[in-house]
Amino acid sequence: MNTILECKNLSKVYKNAVALNSINLSFEKGRIVGLLGPNGSGKTTLIKMINGLLTPTTGEITVEGEPIGVKTKNNVSYLPDRNFLPQWMTVGQVVRYYSDFYNDFKPDRASEMLKSLGIKENMRIKTLSKGTQEKVELILVMSRSAKLYLLDEPIAGVDPATRDYILRTIISNYEEDATVIISTHLIADVEQVLSDVVFINHGDIVMCDTVDNIRQREGKSVDEFFREVFKC
């Protein structure tokens, strides 16, 4: 079976707002997918449901054919869109914390990446800048050998040079049969590492296609195309 993630007639309704409106999506293994949409379009809601943090109102989600649960959580590595590390711990402590938590965590991989970004393991999380905390978080998430990586706004708060490093980190660390879903609105920066993109707006899937198809058909970059589709 080549499908890693499947969403069928998936809806999420909050008290007085429809966050996702009966969407259908399916992704193969080995892809890097950009989940693109304006603020409040439903990106984070979708990611949280795949991850089991939110329950769908209707519809179903499967990861590797399994409904969301303990089994799928072992295969999914999730980067939330806000800082989540315990502030009192040191970098080394959170690495060991992750190592205890996840069987598929590779501490060597984490140490190597921390070193190349000049982040010392004896530094305390609360003394790190917001951008550096984001780097540590991404390193932790990418140091697992997961089947599905869900990265919610992974590059929003870091400088352009680090963005390049992070994107290279993503390409070089995901396993060949793993799939990475990156939600972002900084399309120009991620476009060339993506294989597919999903445009999402007001809870609907506007489009789902490969980057090459879009460029070929539209004669412009996905970034330019996005600006056109979502023109305010």
Partner: peptide
């Protein structure tokens, strides 16, 4: 393929193609 993809900063699928 993967090394070249990393050097170029692109998706390995794209490099493969």
């Amino acid at each position: 393929v993967r090394e070249l993809a990393i050097t170029a900063g692109v998706n390995p699928n794209t490099m493969q193609r």
